[in-house]
């Protein structure tokens, strides 16, 4: 069936919750944010929390250790900073510290990303920051079937998964935070990401497995989240100039699908496009993977170099765009 990005996630959770009674959801406002699930599974399994991220994310670790499967919601990934200990020092450490004898099957669901003028305290991606902590998986779907499939896999995972839902793809987030019901504000929403076909029940998408969205021989785009769609747009423009592009959607920030990255790099020209911070993040990690594997081709990256500004025109300049990707590609192609 054809569904929106957000509905795909909901369908996956609904299916999983009906199958597995151990799944519970808690977080701020979840009784309204997840009103359909609330109406079906009731107040015992969908539990609204106070604005106490450090307490309820910390609690999620304990809940998961003691036998339930929590989906804990941190409304915006930026707010995870308030509760970072639960992730950095608790959830990620239990398995190793217990000698592999105890695990933390928690799914941490957060919205992420920018493009609607809310500034850098509400629009960060942070998958690089979180991925830098060993012991956590970070998934970033870019379309409805991946959104549903990765949610199912996250709920089946034995270890902590941070599930990031880009606000430009999730219509309710964009409506709440960006449009607020207004018809006179515009956003650059990638259509193939915002809605698509899913199966019911949804099909699993493995964590750690990237997806080739386009095969090509001249240049490779490696990306994640909404930027994947910007890469596809740029590759169409390049096609008109007879350059054929390969586009790899990582889907998972960590564990990184190194095999697919290496396969994609065969064009000898790699452009990594990352909406997250450029420094000390995913794009640098991919450069390291390539370099360690003996890749000697060209490499460049497009990413966010600083704080995301509030004003829409400044924000547009800060986030990766079809234009900035195209420019980077032209440079590396030497045309």
């Amino acid at each position: 069936m054809r569904v929106s990005f957000a509905t795909a996630i909901e369908k996956a959770i609904e299916h999983a919750m009906a199958e597995d009674e151990r799944i519970i959801i808690f977080g701020e406002d979840v009784h309204l944010l997840r009103n359909n699930l609330y109406a079906r599974f009731g107040p015992e399994r969908i539990i609204p929390a106070p604005i106490s991220e450090s307490a309820f994310l910390g609690a999620a670790v304990g809940v998961a250790m003691a036998g339930l499967k929590p989906i804990v919601e941190i409304m915006l990934v930026d707010f995870i900073a308030v509760a970072f200990d639960a992730l950095l020092n608790q959830a990620s450490k239990v398995k190793a510290f217990s000698g592999g004898k105890w695990n933390v099957p928690v799914v941490i669901r957060c919205s992420c990303g920018g493009g609607y003028g809310d500034a850098g305290q509400h629009e960060q991606c942070l998958w690089g920051l979180i991925s830098s902590v060993p012991g956590i998986s970070v998934v970033v779907p870019s379309n409805p079937p991946d959104a549903a499939g990765l949610m199912l896999s996250a709920l089946n995972a034995e270890d902590p998964v941070v599930y990031l839902e880009h606000k430009l793809l999730s219509e309710y987030w964009l409506d709440y935070l960006g449009a607020g019901g207004r018809k006179n504000v515009a956003f650059d929403i990638p259509e193939s990401g915002a809605s698509g076909e899913i199966e019911i029940p949804p099909k699993n998408v493995a964590i750690g497995k990237a997806s080739f969205l386009r095969e090509g021989s001249d240049i490779t785009f490696i990306s994640i989240g909404v930027s994947v769609h910007r890469c596809l747009e740029a590759s169409k423009a390049l096609e008109r100039e007879d350059a054929s592009s390969c586009v790899l959607d990582l889907r998972t920030a960590t564990p990184l699908d190194k095999e697919s990255i290496l396969e994609a790099s065969r064009t000898g020209r790699v452009v990594v496009v990352d909406e997250d911070y450029l420094s000390f993040g995913l794009s640098g990690e991919i450069a390291a993977v390539l370099s360690e594997s003996g890749y000697r081709g060209a490499f460049t990256r497009v990413g966010n170099t600083g704080v995301i500004p509030y004003a829409r025109h400044l924000e547009d300049r800060a986030l990766p765009s079809v234009d900035s990707i195209y420019e980077a590609a032209k440079k590396i192609l030497g045309t």
């Binding site: 309204l32 009103n35 359909n36 609330y38 009731g42």
Partner: peptide, 22 residues
């Protein structure tokens, strides 16, 4: 409404409480 009557799920009392709360 679809969710509130879908099976399996919480007992009807719990569902009613949820709807009331919304």
């Amino acid at each position: 409404i679809r969710s509130a009557i879908a099976k399996p799920g919480a007992p009807s009392g719990a569902r009613a409480r949820a709807l009331f709360c919304i």
